[in-house]
């Protein structure tokens, strides 16, 4: 096999087909970017899930001072707080722990959680934060039992299930991930078709050469390899650009705009290691898809 020949044919082909290859590279880059985004989204869901695991708890918020809520005519009294606490303790063993958070602690937690949003901290009045009970359940699904036991007691503002929030968060993240993967699937199909067309155009424009090659007894490999490489090269460049795209997403969005949302995401976001971890997927899938698309096209259009 004379590689020099194959590569010179490849260079000629690329030169002749430059505009087509440009289109192929762009669509391949987009599909690989969607794929990478989907993969990273999946990693983020995993990270967030792990961070929230064990933190699934019920918060029973008590009436703060100056509330306009009709359920809270005044700040919860010590006696009311006592009543709520004993009502919760009665639910053992479903309730595994009950912790009282007073206003000081609430303020500390608030400052800690929103340390990346100083404006929010500055504009918040510490006395507006409600006192609460943080209740851990041995079975997080039986939130209703807690809710019905304390929701209507005097001094209770509202009972909030962190579980509901986490579920909602995950369903949002999952649907974003699915959207990215669907976009990836559609654009991969588009890229495959485009690669097929580009290879077909390349093969047709060089029909004279390939015709001679066939008749002087060049093997199929020799005839098809330059075209196959043309398709694979386009896919490969697309994957590299797609990786550049998700690196940009990591820098500008994950490490930029998403910073203030860090606590919501479980205090942790995807690392560069996760970003680099997508490389084998991007390269593997784009090379496989482009090779397959080129191969199938060549089988259909250049026969021995």
């Amino acid at each position: 096999m004379r590689l020099r020949f194959v590569f010179s044919e490849l260079a000629i082909g690329l030169r002749r087909n430059l505009l087509m290859m440009f289109a192929v590279v762009i669509i391949a880059a987009f599909s690989m970017m969607f794929l990478g985004t989907g993969l990273l989204m999946r990693s983020q869901v995993g990270i967030t899930k792990a961070a929230y695991f064990g933190k699934l708890q019920v918060s029973v918020y008590l009436c703060p001072a100056g509330s306009v809520d009709p359920q809270c005519p005044a700040k919860a009294s010590d006696e009311q707080i006592q009543n709520v606490q004993s009502a919760l303790e009665e639910l053992r063993p479903l309730v595994s722990s009950v912790q009282f958070i007073d206003q000081d602690q609430a303020w500390q937690i608030f400052k800690q959680e929103f340390r990346d949003a100083p404006a929010l901290i500055k504009n918040t009045d510490p006395t507006a934060l409600p006192e609460s009970f943080v209740v851990k359940l041995s079975d997080p699904k039986r939130f209703d039992a807690v809710n019905s036991a304390v929701a209507n007691l005097p001094g209770v503002d509202q009972v909030q299930n962190a579980n509901t929030f986490v579920k909602k968060l995950f369903s949002i993240m999952n649907s974003m991930r699915n959207a990215a993967l669907v976009a990836c699937g559609v654009s991969i199909v588009a890229a495959a078709v485009l690669i097929g067309v580009a290879v077909q155009v390349a093969a047709t424009s060089r029909r004279r050469e390939t015709g001679i090659m066939r008749l002087v007894g060049a093997s199929n490999l020799y005839i098809q390899l330059p075209f196959l490489l043309e398709g694979v090269l386009a896919g490969l460049v697309g994957a590299v650009l797609g990786f550049g795209g998700i690196s940009l997403v990591k820098t500008l969005i994950v490490d930029g705009q998403l910073r203030p949302l860090l606590p919501v995401l479980g205090g942790q976001v995807i690392e560069w290691a996760d970003v680099f971890g997508t490389i084998p997927w991007l390269l593997g899938i784009s090379v496989a898809v482009s090779a397959l698309a080129s191969f199938v096209t060549l089988r259909m259009y250049t026969r021995v």
Binding site: R2, E209, I212, V216, A218, S219, Y222, I223
Partner: peptide, 10 residues
Amino acid sequence: FALEVIGRSR
């Protein structure tokens, strides 16, 4: 060309 494509040496 006829020799190159059947892999003959330069």
